[in-house]
Design a protein around this nucleic acid. Structure first.
Lengths: 134, 134
DNA sequence: CCGCATCCAAACGGATACTG
DNA sequence: CAGTATCCGTTTGGATGCGG
């Protein structure tokens, strides 16, 4: 476990922050399965949310992936993590100003997604149908 | 190869179009490494672009991934593929109306990414620095 | 309650060779 | 030129068990 922590650390240190193009570098963060959804939920919710509250709202996310996602968002400065050293422990998450600034853009995307969902679904089905002949 | 085609076909047919939430279903498409970039390039470019034109503009995409990305975007109805059966062959791609509608939202995201790139980079470095003590 | 460590399967994506 | 087929390493993410 000591070894693994060191490996993780090394991996982060090796990361070349200067090399990648800014757009790709930032947008790649939304490539993962959950980041956008978490930001969206934290954005809708009044006040901070607890770990399990997030987990239950999302429903089908594993504990591991929620932890990973929140850590990454925290590292990027999008989410603030407040840890209360009580027993049992309590941890609350909320968007930072940076995170809130992203919200309208994500909402724009999701609105578009909702509006065009049918068109996309139909297009996918048609595409498959055409492939049946090939 | 016959087998592989059948497997591919089966995979698509098995896909449950009704189950997933519309937002997740659509946004998952942007999870891959290249889709957003391709849409962005097709959006900026005047008129259609050829396969190799796209490949060279992106630079570090493999032939395989460009093909896969374009096929997926075509299936979703975001990109139109025009094939000229000449020798040598020529294939042109351009955004459909659906794809064009997405453009402003993606641009919003990338503008935000550019504007906040420094802040995010700094946050990441700070986060790593804090972890050194742990 | 929250989260880390480990193991493992599946998906992603690159390199290469081949085709019309 | 614009692909397709195949092999293979890397990454992702789920399941489980443990720990403060």
């Amino acid at each position: 476990m000591e070894i693994n922590a060191l490996r993780m650390k090394k991996k982060l240190e090796d990361y070349d922050f200067s090399k990648a193009c800014p757009i790709r570098n930032v947008l790649d963060r939304f490539g993962d399965k959950w980041s956008i959804l978490v930001i969206l939920l934290l954005g809708e919710h009044k006040g901070p949310m607890r770990f399990n509250e997030l987990a239950q709202t999302i429903g089908d996310i594993s504990q591991k992936m929620l932890t990973v996602t929140l850590r990454t968002l925290e590292a990027d400065g999008m989410v603030h993590r407040k840890h209360y050293p009580e027993i049992p422990p309590r941890v609350e998450y909320e968007l930072t100003e940076l995170g809130k600034g992203l919200l309208p853009h994500i909402n724009g995307l999701t609105q578009w997604a909702l509006k065009n969902y049918d068109a996309i679904t139909k297009s996918r089905k048609k595409f498959i149908a055409r492939k049946q002949f090939a």
